[in-house]
Design a protein around this nucleic acid. Structure first.
Lengths: 229, 229
DNA sequence: TAATCGAAAATTGTATACGATCTGAATGAT
DNA sequence: ATCATTCAGATCGTATACAATTTTCGATTA
């Protein structure tokens, strides 16, 4: 079972948090259906709260809710995948720049711990966890920049990035991006906004280049549609 | 009463749409409380659907929901106000550029009608309606650019801009920005992305300059806090 | 008079009940 | 055998009932 059982009487936030982590760590694959009753049993609450949580995750871009059919882990299309990284390319460089100009010693220390955890996860072969931590690193930079609005958008974009990676990642093995994070950290430590900006831009382009976003026959079209003439 | 009564058995989308328009047109002021029962009566549905709609508007940034206290039209702080326009400055210029490179004759015609309606609203002295239409103009550009993700973010940002304007607008009278929209339209018509980019940047700076975002004693602090020593 | 307390009313939070829609297997017709 | 149909079970959508919390307002007291 992909989602571990949880003590009874969870709050909506509990449900959201647990499901979010499960998706970010690729324990829940795109397309997976989340039946309301099932989620109810796992978290020990009524459908009312579960439905609230599922809606919340839909707004976050992690789920797709189809009327009268249920909630599914989202499957971003190629277009959406490109858009996610285009939007990140617009928002993150200048955010990294602002972060470099504001980062305190405590902020730097926190980022160092982050990278450390990332390494450990990779060493233990927990690719899913490493991916989630990598996303958290980017979010942490937005937090340091003290840009709540942009941080909120980035949260959505990084969530969707996680789904994009699940669907379109080329090499299942090494995601050797911790080097880029190290370089970014150096720039932040030196208060070098200009460099942080460019490193982030490059880092995102690098990520994008590791995805397979070439045009392809988009999913299994329904037989009826395929034969229509 | 700020919100007009509506036929029974509305859908969630109906409620969201009507309330959104009311806020965008400044018929509902920041800070106004929206009691669930009241909204139920107006739209002729049960609290279940109303609560869904209110949540949805919270995610959109139009409402703030305080636990056990209810939903209120949001009151963006000075910091949020600045962030909203900073985010728009990051997203909209490149979106306008993309729109200029893609706009069809039909798109241009639609924008022309938009501006026309804007003028008519101003002539009739309906400042609220004019403001809403002005926001729609910006959204339409994102739609033309065919950038769903950014359009979604802009929807939120423009919603919040409407609240920011309600709170921090300097001159209550003329919002003479239709000139800027005309210039933008020309650039789009000519397929001149570079110019569209710069016009949009300037337009946003211009808007920002018409707001009074100077530091001030932030709202009426509670007496107890004010006297604390 | 002003402040404090408490109980009732108002309001929101959560669970449950009921209705609508979808799904899928069994049945029957071609 | 294949396709259409029907009906029961599963699942989601909405309304309502009940619980928890906040708000209001009058009574009490310093």
């Amino acid at each position: 079972m992909p989602v571990t059982a949880v003590a009874s009487h969870s709050t909506v936030d509990d449900i959201v948090t647990h499901l979010t982590e499960a998706v970010h760590e690729h324990r829940l694959q795109p397309g997976t259906k989340l039946r309301e009753d099932e989620v109810c049993e796992i978290f020990g609450v009524s459908r009312t709260l579960v439905r609230q949580a599922l809606r919340s995750l839909e707004y976050q871009g992690l789920l797709t809710i189809e009327k009268n059919r249920g909630a599914f882990v989202a499957k971003p299309s190629l277009k959406e995948a490109r858009e996610v990284f285009q939007a990140r390319a617009l928002l993150e460089p200048s955010t990294a720049r602002a972060a470099a100009e504001r980062a305190s010693r405590a902020d730097i220390a926190k980022l160092e711990r982050h990278i450390q955890e990332e390494h450990e996860a990779i060493d233990r072969g927990e690719a899913g966890l490493a991916l989630k931590l990598s996303g958290d690193f980017h979010l942490e930079i937005a937090r340091i920049a003290d840009q709540d609005t942009i941080e909120q958008f980035l949260k959505q974009l990084i969530s969707r990035s996680s789904l994009v990676i699940a669907l379109y990642w080329r090499r299942r093995n090494a995601l050797c991006e911790s080097h880029a994070h190290h370089a970014l950290l150096d720039a932040l430590r030196n208060g070098d906004g200009e460099t942080a900006d460019e490193l982030m831009k490059g880092h995102l382009l690098d990520l994008l280049s590791q995805l397979d976003l070439r045009e392809r026959t988009e999913g299994p079209v329904s037989l009826r549609d395929a034969l229509k003439r």
